[in-house]
C-alpha cells in the first residue's frame, strides 16, 4: 500500500502541456476523456453516420497531435476543442453543399411520423428529435446538442459557435418550438 503509485488527476490544460512535451500517456488520458463525447457529437452532427464519426474523431485528435501548441491555455480546453470539432463539421457541410436556410426548411414537408404518446419510447423520441433537427440545419443542431447533450451554458455555446449569446438563445428557442410542433406529444408535456 505504501508503494502504491498515487494517481494524480490532471486537468485538461495540464494534460495539454504534457502533450506538448511529448507525453504519450497524457495524450491517452485526454483521448479517453473525450472520445465518447466527440464521437457522439460527430455522429449526430454528420447525419448519424458511425463511419464518418470515426473518421472525424480520428482527424480531430490528429490535429491535436500535429499542433498541440495551437491550444491557448488561458482559455477553457473543452470549449476550444468543441469549437475545433464544430469547424470541422462546418467544413464538411460546406463540402457537401447541403447548408439549408431557414425559409427553405419551412417549405419542406414534415417527414416525421407522429406517434401517440402511449406508444412512444425515449429511443424513438430521440430519433424523431434528430429527424426534425436534420431539417433545421447544422446551426440549430450544433447549438441544441451543445446545450442539451453536453450541458454547456449559453455563454460557452456562444464561444464554441463564435456567435453572440442572443443568436444562440434564438436558435435554441426556434429549435425547441419546431420540435414541439413536429413531435405533438411534447406539446402536452413541456412548457416553454
Amino acid at each position: 500500500m505504501i508503494f502504491r503509485r498515487k494517481n494524480k488527476v490532471y486537468t485538461d490544460p495540464e494534460l495539454m502541456q504534457q502533450i506538448v512535451c511529448g507525453d504519450q500517456s497524457a495524450f491517452g488520458e485526454l483521448y479517453h476523456r473525450y472520445k465518447d463525447r466527440m464521437y457522439y457529437y460527430f455522429y449526430r452532427m454528420l447525419g448519424n453516420s458511425g463511419e464518418l464519426a470515426n473518421d472525424f474523431l480520428q482527424e480531430l485528435f490528429m490535429k491535436l497531435i500535429e499542433k498541440p501548441e495551437s491550444y491557448n491555455p488561458s482559455f477553457a480546453f473543452h470549449t476550444w476543442f468543441y469549437s475545433v470539432a464544430n469547424n470541422m463539421c462546418k467544413n464538411e457541410y460546406r463540402k457537401r453543399g447541403v447548408r439549408q436556410e431557414y425559409y427553405e426548411t419551412e417549405k419542406l414537408e414534415p417527414q416525421i411520423e407522429f406517434l401517440p404518446e402511449s406508444t412512444i419510447e425515449p429511443e424513438q423520441a430521440i430519433e424523431k428529435i434528430f429527424q426534425a433537427l436534420e431539417q433545421l440545419g447544422e446551426e440549430h443542431r450544433s447549438a441544441f446538442l451543445l446545450r442539451y447533450r453536453e450541458g454547456f451554458s449559453i455563454k460557452e455555446v456562444a464561444e464554441i459557435l463564435e456567435l453572440p449569446e442572443g443568436t444562440v438563445k434564438s436558435r435554441l428557442f426556434y429549435a425547441k418550438r419546431i420540435l414541439a410542433e413536429k413531435l405533438e406529444y411534447l406539446k402536452d408535456e413541456i412548457e416553454f
Binding site: I129, R147, E189
Partner: peptide, 12 residues
C-alpha cells in the same frame, strides 16, 4: 408540465 430544457437534457 416539465421544463423544456429539463426534458431535452434528460432525453439526450
Amino acid at each position: 408540465k416539465k421544463n423544456s430544457d429539463q426534458l431535452f437534457s434528460q432525453l439526450l
